[in-house]
Write a protein that binds this DNA or RNA. Structure first.
Length: 152
DNA sequence: GCCAACGTTGGC
DNA sequence: GCCAACGTTGGC
């Protein structure tokens, strides 16, 4: 089992939005960065995914989800009306993938980015590195445990 | 709203 | 293949 973190803008899709989906889960689409897409493709069923709120007043880790469906073709890339439309992507050779996540829990508190940056155990993680814009971030088992420890 | 950092595009 | 210009991300 692997560990990940995904960024989401709470105005668009918050941890509550994911929770409201229940067993149906949430299709995680709209990723339009090759490095992030490659990480999506590495995800396996049952992988644990930290949910991170970005581009808002309180940025940080808010909860946990689980991968319930591995990478499939993101249909939005072929939808001209979608903001995620990609004119250069062809059905016979799709560029972008999506996955499905299911809600697991909301943490007792939001773990702010500032606190993550102070943790020596997380210093090597891309999330806390200056200028990092990766929206799908791999976590080692140790880094994942460090996050849980900070929450206690 | 500002701006640093980054990825992508496209001319050459 | 280089690299300048541009658009986007995302914290603050």
């Amino acid at each position: 089992m692997k560990y990940w973190l995904v960024k989401t803008e709470p105005d668009e899709c918050s941890i509550d939005t994911i929770a409201a989906r229940g067993d149906a889960g949430m299709v995680w689409d709209g990723v339009r960065n090759y490095q992030a897409r490659n990480f999506l493709r590495e995800m396996q069923q049952g992988d644990q995914v930290l949910i991170y709120h970005s581009s808002c007043s309180k940025v940080g880790i808010v909860g946990l989800a689980e991968v319930t469906e591995t990478a499939f073709v993101d249909p939005l890339q072929f939808d001209p009306d979608s903001p995620y439309f990609d004119a250069k992507s062809k059905p016979e050779r799709p560029r972008w993938d999506a996955i499905r996540l299911q809600y697991r829990q909301t943490f007792a508190r939001l773990l702010p980015l500032a606190e993550l940056k102070k943790s020596p155990a997380l210093a090597a993680n891309p999330l806390v590195q200056k200028g990092s814009r990766l929206s799908v971030v791999p976590f080692t088992a140790d880094e994942f445990q460090a996050v849980l420890a900070l929450l206690n």
